[in-house]
Write a protein that binds this DNA or RNA. Structure first.
Lengths: 98, 98
DNA sequence: AAAACATATTGACAAACGTCGATGTATAGT
DNA sequence: ACTATACATCGACGTTTGTCAATATGTTTT
């Protein structure tokens, strides 16, 4: 994962609402209507946030009738975690993230 | 680490220049003048980025004469890494980040 | 004391962001 | 067919962001 993509994911996670959405999806797939219940934002705003999370590759959509089910993308999440884990405050560890 | 602080760190890392700065500091302490050499930005802009990285707790400053030496804050970095590692695309893992 | 250097601060500006109300699109139920 | 539901898109708005030139602050050197 290059720095541009990693930064894009970071930026997506940089909004408190979006970070909380990702944390909720960490428990498994969830539809927009259920997500919406947990926030003080309107439906268009949630839709906008979901679009940003999808566009950076962190979240996938699965359409089922009226419902959109969102889930975390395992591949992107794994790559991103590696990227963050490579950050180190000590010199003894190899660096060179992404 | 709560969601507000985690989101603030994510936002700080959400700029490609700042992510790269953090990656460079991952190799050890570095002064502003050396960081500046690697980017196509002016000195005031770098100073602004460093302020943002410091304010979220991810970076520390050590003044030595004319030079400001920057380094990653181990505690904040560790907390943040835990936060990201708790994100999971599988249901079998415990979640509840931050 | 003066000049040179390293960094921070200020003020300005265009671009991007988060949010909303209104509207559009598609599906499900009556 | 009509209505209700779930979600996306559009247009607008105030706010924040990334950037720079200009200037200020503090340190070292001459």
């Amino acid at each position: 994962m290059n720095e541009i993509d990693a930064a894009k994911i970071c930026r997506a996670l940089g909004d408190p609402n979006r970070l909380q959405i990702v944390q909720m999806l960490s428990g498994g797939e969830m539809c927009a209507c259920r997500l919406l219940e947990h926030f003080q934002i309107t439906q268009p705003t949630l839709s906008h946030h979901m679009k940003i999370l999808c566009e950076c590759g962190l979240v996938d959509t699965r359409r089922e009738g009226k419902w959109s089910h969102y889930s975390l993308n395992c591949g992107t999440l794994a790559d991103f975690r590696v990227c963050i884990e490579q950050l180190s405050c000590c010199k003894n560890e190899k660096e060179g993230c992404c």
